[in-house]
């Protein structure tokens, strides 16, 4: 079975003179897999998701999603690809404030004909499909649907966002810390709902979170700092010479593959490192 996601020798940096944020030699995610991605703040988790969604492009290497070489597609085709095949959930503030709940959930169908068709294959109308998904997520109280989205609780907003990401059954679901603002009980319930929907539609799930307690629910865990050979994020606050390789505490006990390439990673990261870099990448609060 071909993997849904395949990365090869990937390098990404935000600005041309800056340091590499991501340097991943290989990563594969198979169809239907539920992948848990963890890593400290600033380690490039969101950046990786942006690459998977085809919003940003790597400077080097290959990135294949659903057998599409994203790095070789034109921007317009990548946008179309994302609209057709990817459901995305943000950490917070997922909803368009001026649209109602139903309009927010059916929004993907405005950008993708394919997802509209797939949604209509399951329900007689887009609204009906939205209501079906919302009902699965316990959001079918009639009073609720007429409420402006800004008046929903954070947990309700996150569930609406999940319903939107699921509409039209995209093959790949990407969630960037969607549970960080939920309490423990709701967090679990939210994830179980997400799993159920993914299983029903056969979607693959890539889920970023800081919360180690969720890890056990997933098929596999990806520790980004172990995989990522770009080590910039630990370097920012430190003073050192450009030639001196930096080894971050998290990297002291990494996998064998990472150890083998450590030297290369350091040289890749080194040139762009001097003083000005600490201003470009201030430590995150």
């Amino acid at each position: 079975m071909t993997p849904v996601i395949r990365l090869h020798e990937l390098r990404f940096r935000w600005c041309a003179q800056g340091p590499d944020i991501l340097a991943i030699d290989a990563l594969e995610v198979s169809a239907g897999e539920r992948l848990f991605v963890e890593g400290p703040s600033g380690s490039g988790k969101s950046t990786l998701l942006g690459l998977l969604a085809g919003v940003n492009l790597p400077q080097q290497g290959r990135i294949e999603v659903l057998r599409q070489p994203l790095d070789q597609l034109s921007p317009a085709v990548r946008d179309r690809f994302r609209a057709d095949h990817i459901g995305y959930i943000f950490q917070l503030f997922n909803l368009i404030p001026y649209l109602g709940i139903i309009d927010n959930v059916t929004l993907p169908a405005r950008f993708s004909h394919r997802r509209r068709q797939r949604a209509l294959a399951r329900s007689p109308s887009l609204t009906a499909e939205a209501q079906r998904l919302l009902a699965h997520l316990d959001l079918d109280q009639p009073g609720l649907l007429r409420q402006p989205v800004s008046e929903l609780s954070i947990g309700q907003q996150q569930r609406v966002a999940a319903a939107r990401a699921l509409l039209g059954s995209p093959e790949l679901l990407i969630a960037d810390e969607p549970t960080s603002s939920l309490d423990t009980d709701r967090r679990r319930a939210f994830i179980e709902l997400l799993f159920a929907e993914c299983a029903e539609m056969g979607s693959t799930l890539v889920f970023v979170s800081h919360d180690p307690s969720l890890e056990g629910l997933f098929d596999r865990t990806l520790r980004l700092p172990e995989l990522n050979r770009a080590v910039h994020h630990q370097s920012a606050p430190m003073q050192r010479s450009a030639s001196e390789p930096v080894v971050a505490p998290e990297l002291t006990a990494p996998s064998a593959a990472a150890t083998a390439t450590r030297a290369t990673a350091a040289t890749v990261a080194a040139p762009g490192m001097p003083a000005e870099q600490s201003e470009q990448q201030p430590p995150r609060p």
């Binding site: 921007p75 946008d79 994302r82 609209a83 057709d84 503030f93 368009i96 993907p108 950008f111």
Partner: peptide, 16 residues
């Protein structure tokens, strides 16, 4: 900015 990012995540092209 948040709204624009959401639209992008939904497949909106920058021209849209």
């Amino acid at each position: 900015r948040r709204e624009l990012a959401i639209l992008r995540s939904l497949g909106a092209r920058p021209t849209q």
